[in-house]
């Protein structure tokens, strides 16, 4: 390819990316603009992207109308604990599914996947009854136990481990390393992209979870951001301006986590391990 042709391809590529970025960012622009409006103007047609009289007070009002500080602290606590547990238990279990041979492996694994298919609405009530019997209703522990052991994380980690060559494990076994050692010293360092992905997904899922906390946390001092924001939707009215300003604030930690984990998406991690 000639140099000028290469440059032309690049320009088209960037143009494409810019258009894409624009389309993808419109919801955010809408959220920002809605967060500075009165509720009645939020869904007004045609969309007024820059509000005439921006209501900056929305951003101060949400702190006084609901105990947002407590809600954020609760959500942060749950999110961090669940994410850490999820990272550990998923990556640990997935190692067995991907790299070890044992009785009932495939059956167990297929069962794991298929359970993801059952919608939560179908088993929410039996689950709640179990938690209530254990006296865990209205505790953060209930939410943690509910979400820390997911089949999704195991499935994802297993798939990632599978693309790491078996030769690496074999070599280590010949060197006398235990399976636990292989997991900790070889697999984990190689799976930073997958661990980052699980971190991002779990973080987002727990941070934005609504139904779980809604059912399990009925005491104000235990509630999370998403329930807090729904407090602005009442039986006969809804304060969408305030909801959006709260949503914008709630979005910031998610973006920070996403951006800060980007550096672990580096090419050829596995092969570099092969050489070392």
């Amino acid at each position: 390819m000639s140099k000028s042709k290469k440059a032309a391809v690049r320009i088209i590529l960037y143009l494409l990316l810019l258009i894409l970025a624009l389309v993808m960012l419109t919801p955010f622009a809408w959220m920002l603009s809605a967060s500075l409006k009165l509720s009645k103007d939020v869904f007004l047609f045609p969309i007024q992207w820059i509000p005439e009289n921006p209501r900056w007070s929305n951003y101060s009002d949400i702190w006084s109308k609901i105990p947002l500080g407590i809600f954020i602290a609760n959500t942060a606590k749950l999110t961090v604990i669940i994410t850490l547990l999820q990272l550990f238990t998923s990556s640990f279990a997935a190692y067995a599914f991907a790299k070890l041979r044992f009785k009932g492996r495939d059956l167990l694994f297929m069962g794991y996947i298929a359970t993801i298919a059952v919608p939560w609405q179908a088993y929410m009530v039996p689950q709640f009854i179990i938690m209530s019997r254990l006296h865990l209703n209205n505790t953060h522990t209930a939410i943690i136990l509910l979400q820390a052991f997911s089949a999704f994380g195991v499935f994802m980690m297993r798939q990632f481990y599978q693309s790491i060559p078996d030769e690496l494990c074999e070599a280590a076994r010949i060197d006398g390393m235990s399976e636990y050692g292989i997991y900790a010293k070889i697999m984990l360092p190689l799976s930073k992209p997958a661990l980052s992905t699980i971190t991002i997904f779990t973080f987002v899922a727990v941070w934005n979870d609504f139904l779980g906390p809604l059912i399990y946390l009925t005491k104000t001092e235990l509630k999370t951001i998403q329930i807090g924001l729904r407090m602005f939707i009442s039986q006969y009215s809804a304060e969408y301006g305030l909801i959006m300003s709260g949503s914008v604030i709630a979005l910031i930690p998610v973006l920070i986590v996403f951006l800060s984990l980007q550096k672990y998406f580096v090419e050829g991690v596995a092969s570099s391990g092969l050489k070392g």
Partner: peptide
């Protein structure tokens, strides 16, 4: 992240 967890656990 662990520190954050502990901090927010206290706050919570």
């Amino acid at each position: 992240i662990v520190c954050l967890a502990l901090l927010s656990a206290c706050a919570g």
